[in-house]
Each structure stands twice: as C-alpha cells, then as structure tokens.
Amino acid sequence: MSSVNPGALPQSDAAQPKKRNEWPLWEVFIRGQHGMSHRHVGSLHAPDADMAIRNARDVYTRRNEGVSIWVVEARHIAASSPSDKGPLYEPSESKVYRHPTFYDIPDEAGHM
C-alpha cells in the first residue's frame, strides 16, 4: 500500500546539505482543558521544534484552549492514500455487528 504526505518537504537532516529558504511545516496537537487526548488543531511554520511549540502557543492557545502542546514536523507523518479508500474502508461498511448497538449500555458506564 502506498502512503502519501501532501505536506512533505525535503529532508532537513544534516546528511542533506540542500539549502531551504522556507521553515518546515509542523502539525500541531493540543490537549484541551478537559480533553482526554491531544487533538490536531492545525499547522504552522517554524525553524525548529522549540519555536514550533512557541508559535503553537501563540497561534492556537490564545483563548485558553489548551494545557499541553505536541508538534511534529509534517514530513514525519505518513498518511493513507485517498486512492486506496475502497479497499481500506468499504469492507467495514457492511459489518454492522462491529458497532456496539446491540447492547444496552448501563447509564453508570458513562461516555464510551
């Protein structure tokens, strides 16, 4: 299966001396005040990870949205290919028994 990364930029590792005049793209994940997991909120440019976190703080947490920030350089994200969506996702469409809709969930169990 092929993977794609539309935001992929040239490798910035030292082994590659290629000069780049644009800061790399970073994907930003924020854990909200009451959220349980970090959620993707958007992306931004920054010269390094420290500045990416600072930029994320300034761009995405101005209104008290978060208590924790993750950033990852976009080129490190592997993504599924849109053209594979048939084999990847369609087989699950006909498997209703995988949804827990045939059980009564007690109220005490809370959100699942």
């Binding site: 600072r54 930029n55 300034d58 761009v59 101005r62």
Partner: peptide
C-alpha cells in the same frame, strides 16, 4: 515577516 511572528508580536 511571517504570520506566526505577526500573531506572536500582537500577543
């Protein structure tokens, strides 16, 4: 020079 810095300076 870049939008990230623009927002940071405004903050």
């Amino acid at each position: 020079p870049v939008i990230e810095e623009d927002i940071a300076l405004a903050n």
